[in-house]
Amino acid sequence: MSGTTSTGKVMTAEDVAATLRDGMTVGIGGWGSRRKPMALVRAVLRAGVRDLTVVSCGGPDVGLLCAAGLVRRVVAPFVTLDSVPLEPHFRAARQSGAVAFTEYDEGMFLFGLLAAAHRLPFLPTRAGLGSDVLRVNPELRTVRSPYGEGEELVAVPALSLDVALVHVDRADPRGNGRYLGPDPYLDDLYAKAAARCYLSCERLVPPGEPAGPPQTLLISRMHIAGVVEAPGGGHFTDCSPDRGRDEAFQRHYARAAAAGGEEWAAFAARFLGGDEAVYQEEVRRWHEERARPVKEGV
């Protein structure tokens, strides 16, 4: 037996962030405010790497990275917090012209990842034809079908990634990842489209444990460079069935992000100023403070 030792590919979020370089293209799994690798994103914020191209079905991952000034370009079909429709930091970044935007249709985005995952230069699709997605992405080309009547289709270029960050419910030290929620999103495609993919998980388990339907084994170790155990690592996004979205905290985030200025600075200082343990502890305290009955004046 060679290769995987008992610790296998286990590393810390800081280790992952330290592998990023300025100017890299980074794919981030999940969808909107659902199963985002937030602990890894928070580590990237602390590492302060710059000029990133972020490829994502965007949520607070995109917002936080934009707010920290680490992003040169966003490649996405949308950026949303789902229960809060618009992402305040992404809006601010776009409206101030701080980030460039490659705006794709969702189906185009899927095909871009599929192309990269299969080492194809592009995949053809009807999605995008006739829309302004072609106007705002003048580098996009169409192809003519060599069959039939020679239909013209959009040639979606491969969305090849330097690094991908993905969060799942369970993983083993070798890098196999299991999802327990209702939707795999596009997470395995990010892993396959990337030169290196790092996986964080709610809980690290021995290979094959706990037993579950084999089709929930979404991520294969052949595509994974490192594994991080990060309980609550998807917070505040939806990580069902273990943890639903922390809606109260997401509203708190969205309010502070929309307010900007001192209010955002206070949020960032409290929650993002320390490491992941500090973050989790401050979130716990924040909920405790809210639960405490407000004392009325005498």
Binding site: G58, A76, P77, F78, V79, T80, P85, L86, F90, R91, R94, Q95, S96, G97, E103, Y104, D105, E106, G107, M108, T125, R126, A127, G128, L129, G130, S131, D132, V133, V136
Partner: peptide, 26 residues
Amino acid sequence: ISAIGPWARPRSQLLGSRGAPGNTIC
């Protein structure tokens, strides 16, 4: 559903195109 104002630097950034281009043509 993408953005209000000039796309290059919108007055109000909305969701992004999401699935609208594909939905309508397919």
